[in-house]
Simulated assay, not measured.
Amino acid sequence: MAERAVEEAKAALRREAHAARAALASEDRAEAAKAVAGHFFEAVAYGPDDVIAGYWRIRDELDCQPILVRLMDSGQKVVLPVVQGDEQPLDMRIWEADTPLYEAGFGTLAPSDLAPRAVPDLVLMPLLGFDSEGTRLGYGGGYYDRTLSVLPKRPLLIGLAFAAQELPHIPREPHDIPLDMVVTENGMRAFGTAA
């Protein structure tokens, strides 16, 4: 019964967070994406050999392309997640410069099925909401939770969001893996061990 109450609470929070995100003007979104990229490169430490997982923005998510383009221009290895099936972990495919991306469902683009795979050291995560404890509210499909549970090492988890997506509290279930950091247009915040 408690599990059902948590799911109902999360569903209500998803509606609230999605409405807050959808209400942002397109020019504010573009400015926020530039600001988030600036804060990311100022505040997040990563090595030249680290593999960084990004995402291809869908709907009204914060666009992380400014980060991905700069990473790729500097020679950093970048992977994009691909949904393989409803109960499957994400497939992390390397996106190499000048290689085309293909429609991969859910309105997203991804490298081809022939692209090499890599295990990320750092994951940039889209989200619907986050709270002051680093709890991430996703769409409810569990793709990132499943993926993180099967990786051979735990990567640094960084949520990318608009400041308007912060919620007072998100219930955290045992399978919910908290963020290490979140970056919004207002700056970077670290949680737990990354603080």
Rank of each mutant, 00 (worst) to 15 (best):
A35C: 03
V150P: 07
S74G: 14
T99L: 13
A97G: 09
A97D: 13
S74V: 04
D131I: 01
P66W: 02
A53N: 03
L137G: 04
C64I: 12
V36H: 09
L71K: 05
W56G: 07
G140A: 01
Q88R: 07
D131S: 02
S149W: 02
G47P: 10
V36A: 08
V83T: 09
F40I: 05
D63A: 09
G140P: 10
L157E: 07
D50C: 08
A35H: 10
L157P: 01
P155D: 06
L156P: 03
V51M: 02
A32W: 09
V44W: 00
D49Y: 01
I94E: 13
G38T: 05
G54H: 00
P100R: 14
E103H: 13
G105W: 07
V69Q: 13
V78Q: 09
W56E: 14
A30H: 12
H39Y: 09
D145K: 05
H39S: 02
L137P: 06
D73V: 05
L80F: 00
P155K: 06
L101K: 10
V36Q: 04
Y102G: 07
S132H: 10
I67T: 10
D86L: 11
S149C: 07
Y144K: 00
L128P: 01
E103G: 12
Q88S: 13
W56F: 14
P89S: 07
F106H: 14
S149G: 12
D86P: 15
V123E: 08
M92G: 05
E42R: 15
E42S: 15
L137T: 04
A164E: 15
F41K: 04
A53W: 02
D98N: 14
L101G: 01
I94S: 01
V51W: 09
F130T: 01
S74E: 14
C64Y: 00
V150I: 14
E96L: 11
A104R: 08
G138T: 03
D63N: 11
Q88V: 10
P152C: 11
Q88G: 08
L160R: 01
E87A: 13
V123C: 15
Q88T: 08
P152Q: 04
A53Q: 12
Y55D: 13
P100A: 15
K34S: 12
R136G: 00
E133V: 04
G38A: 14
M72K: 13
E87T: 12
Q65T: 13
A30Q: 13
R57I: 07
G105D: 10
G47I: 04
F162K: 01
D49E: 15
G47D: 12
Q84Y: 04
G138F: 09
M92N: 02
G47C: 00
I52A: 02
V51F: 03
D113Y: 12
A35I: 10
Y46V: 07
V83R: 04
K153S: 14
L157H: 00
S132Q: 08
Y143A: 14
A32Y: 10
R59Q: 09
V78L: 14
F106L: 15
R154P: 15
G142A: 03
D63Q: 03
E42T: 13
D49H: 11
D63I: 06
A32E: 02
T135Q: 03
V79H: 02
L124K: 01
L160C: 06
R59L: 11
L157I: 04
R154C: 06
A164N: 05
A164R: 15
G129L: 00
L127I: 03
M72C: 06
